[in-house]
Simulated assay, not measured.
Amino acid sequence: MNTEQKSFQDRVAQINQRAEQAASIAPGPRTETIWQRLAYPGAFIAAFTVGVTVVFLTRYIQFLSVGVPEPGQVNAQDFVGIVLASMAGIVISKFLREKQKEFAGACTAGVLFATFTFHNLVWKYPAQFERLFNEDWVEFMQRLTEPSSLYIFGLTIGLT
């Protein structure tokens, strides 16, 4: 054999050796359980639920500190609630560093959903909200809004 053929065969052997080496290092097939696969979408549901819960807690804290808001303060109360809930969502998303943007988005969606539809729960379960808040607060929410609607900064949009 001449030297060109020998060097070509050496290079082919090196390439084959590297390919075998890479194949031996490559990870095997994934063996995730169904629970591990459901954890990712479940985390979105949990982040959304956290957003809803934060809005509920900010409304409750505002009620304990301010009481029943004045009619002119309602828009400001909604804005403060969104800001406080968003700040809480940001703090929570710091714990979820790996997928922070996705979970912060789900948490923000929960915040906005709960902010604009919270009054529907008051219409559906007035007795429970009277026990948690008080009768005046429930009456105020029912005077301000309509059932099955969106309440966006003083504007009621009927859904039915």
Rank of each mutant, 00 (worst) to 15 (best):
G28M: 05
W137A: 04
Q77Y: 13
T117H: 03
D10W: 12
S7F: 11
G110S: 07
F129H: 05
A47Y: 01
P41C: 09
T53S: 12
E130Y: 04
Y151R: 02
T3E: 12
L155S: 11
Q73F: 15
A104I: 10
V138L: 02
G67W: 07
P147T: 05
P147I: 04
V52P: 01
Q14V: 09
A22R: 11
I15C: 04
M87H: 08
A22Q: 12
R30A: 14
P147A: 03
E135Y: 04
I152Q: 00
V68C: 02
S24A: 15
A104F: 15
L144Q: 02
T160F: 11
L57G: 02
R59L: 15
F95Q: 12
V83E: 11
A88T: 10
T156H: 00
F48R: 04
F8K: 14
E98W: 07
M141A: 10
L159K: 05
G81D: 01
K99M: 04
A43R: 04
G72I: 14
D10V: 13
E70K: 10
G42K: 04
V91I: 15
A23D: 08
K94G: 10
A76I: 13
Q9A: 09
R18Q: 08
W123V: 02
A13G: 08
S93T: 01
T49S: 12
V52Y: 02
E98K: 11
Q17C: 05
A43C: 07
T156D: 00
Q62V: 12
A19Q: 10
F44I: 13
T145A: 02
G158M: 10
S86D: 05
D78M: 15
I45P: 03
V111Q: 00
I82C: 08
A85Q: 01
S86C: 12
S24V: 09
V80P: 03
Q62L: 15
I34W: 12
G67H: 03
V138K: 02
I90M: 13
P29S: 14
G105F: 07
Q5T: 07
T3C: 05
V74Q: 06
F140A: 06
A19R: 07
Q17S: 07
F153Y: 10
T58Q: 03
T156I: 05
E70Y: 07
V83L: 15
E4F: 10
E139V: 11
F8A: 14
K99R: 12
K99T: 03
I34M: 13
G158N: 12
I61R: 09
K99Y: 05
K99E: 05
Q17D: 06
I15S: 06
Q14H: 12
F118W: 15
G105M: 08
T53N: 10
F129W: 10
Q17L: 06
I61L: 15
F133R: 02
G154R: 01
H119W: 11
F103L: 09
W137F: 12
A39E: 13
V66P: 01
Q17H: 06
Q5N: 08
A109D: 05
T53W: 09
G89L: 07
S65P: 01
S149L: 06
T33N: 08
D136M: 09
E102V: 09
G158Q: 13
K101T: 08
Q5M: 01
Q9C: 07
V68M: 06
A76S: 14
I61V: 15
L84D: 01
T160E: 13
Q36V: 03
R11C: 06
K99I: 02
